[in-house]
Design a protein around this nucleic acid. Structure first.
Lengths: 137, 137
DNA sequence: ATAAACTATGAAGTGAACTCTAGGGCAAGC
DNA sequence: GCTTGCCCTAGAGTTCACTTCATAGTTTAT
């Protein structure tokens, strides 16, 4: 499979694929060279890129991913270590979600205030005062 | 108030504050110069930085923020426009949250599989097969 | 008086994950 | 055999939000 074909199949650009290779996320199980020096990708490349996408989607940086994949290839870790890793990753994501919840809280308050401002400016004023008094804002 | 004092008060570095000024987020209501060319910050600077932090915390880039603050200063927008903006911002954040939910789903499945692998490798194998059959993975 | 601690400037550096460019080599159709 | 359209490389550019640096002037403490 040539690079553009793989790119289309995976929804990536050819630049990204070459970039991943340069970063050491693909090796000769995934890419070989033809006589003309064109890259020729195996089906394992597709699997690899899917794996990369999956790990990326669970919030891994490419650097972290590189470690994970190397260990994955080398079968370095015990099941318990993997479980621990998943748990810590979960915590990471959960705290990010909490951040977003706080953002939503703020936006909701803003919305409430603005909506009230259209219906009952008086009450909106009161709300603003209560807000200023109550929080660190 | 000199720059270090403001920085301490706001939990920012002096570099960041100067950077914000350079980016046009502060103007002469917030900073003036003394005879020695040192910056002198008013209380409005504190308010401004709080506002910046708030908007940043609701997921605004500095560029977006700049627009928001300029409009805020100029009183450009109607209440309805602001409400619309908040609504679109909410959607943005909500979709980010959904992404994280999907990530958590994946992590939970991974965890389930790995846990099962310790207790009952047979069943774990079945689970893996079911997974491969059922989803696009 | 001198050193330490603060202030100023403009410019360059950081890191992540691409993205694009220049300058060239192959391949397939007409 | 010429054009079009892939492919190659090395390296520079992009975005964001800072951060660091080099250099220099000012204020404060001893």
């Amino acid at each position: 499979m040539k690079i553009q074909e793989l790119a289309d199949k995976m929804g990536l650009t050819i630049h990204t694929i070459r970039f991943y290779e340069k970063e050491g996320l693909l090796d000769d199980r995934h890419v070989r060279r033809e006589r003309n020096n064109y890259r020729n990708y195996s089906d394992k490349a597709v699997e690899r890129l899917k794996l990369i996408k999956k790990f990326q989607s669970i919030g891994c940086s490419l650097a972290e991913l590189k470690g994970v994949l190397q260990d994955h290839d080398a079968n370095t870790h015990t099941n318990q270590q993997i479980i621990d890793w998943i748990r810590s990753k979960k915590k990471e994501i959960e705290s990010k979600k909490e951040e977003y919840d706080q953002i939503l809280d703020t936006l909701n308050k803003m919305l409430e205030y603005r909506t009230l401002l259209m219906d009952d400016p008086q009450k909106a004023q009161e709300m603003l005062k209560a807000w200023h008094a109550g929080s660190s804002d």
